[in-house]
Amino acid sequence: MHLQIANLCKSFGYGAQRKEVLRNVSFDVNAGEFVALVGSSGSGKSTVMRLIAGLDSPSSGVVSLDGRPITGPGSDRGMVFQKYSLYPWLTAAQNVAFGMELQRRSRQEIRERTAYFLEVVGLADSARRLPRELSGGMQQRVAIARALAAEPKLLLLDEPFGALDIQIRESMQEFLYHLWQRTGLTALLITHDLEEALLLAGQVHIMAPSPGRIVRSVAVDLDRSAMGQLRLSRPFLDLREELAQCLRGLEPALPT
């Protein structure tokens, strides 16, 4: 698995209304990596994700998966949204099975994989519950299970924990990290939360707005054996502060 993004540009609108959203964005994601794009709103990070998912097409530049340019959405790139991530009329199990049914897998395979992935995200007991009966964190875990069950080469996470309370966010971050370790999945995370990116990703790209572009790329090499302590460890805090200053420098100063 190799995702290549090279000189990616995207503009919306025409003529005087034309708005440049992305300028010359380049980065790579290799098999088994966890990569994060961090930026404020308007930095075009969600646009990058939509272009990779094939939900939009670039104005110029390359988005290719294993050497083949991406021309539209497909099940090789699973996606988890922040809002409306589940089908409200389907139970947790039916949601997980949904993608596999679209792929026309055999009934038995669907049943087995549904049970397996619900187990993986720790929701085997909630298989028959409707989304509205699940907490926000549980809903996002079902959405992740559904994306994984469809066997994507790459998992795209668009602010997956953005709508959750801070305590739940933290436990979901640990959950996602351990899931990544256990399953060896390849993930691209979009977030405005620098801490989240540093906790989870091996490679962090900082994006600046107007037009969206990558201003800094950091390889994060931290000891993640104890997630709880990591948040408070010196190297983590130093790196966070350094990058936070970089992010602050991108914002127009507020009048004081």
Binding site: A53, G54, L55, G72, P73, G74, S75, R77, G78, M79, F81, K83, Y84, S85, Y87, F98, G99, L102, Q103, A143, R146, A147, A150, L156
Partner: peptide
């Protein structure tokens, strides 16, 4: 219909009539 619900189906391999 929320765009996300349709796009989720697209990224799960859904097309057209389904």
């Amino acid at each position: 219909v929320p765009r996300e619900l349709v796009e989720t189906a697209l990224t799960l391999g859904g097309r057209g009539l389904p």
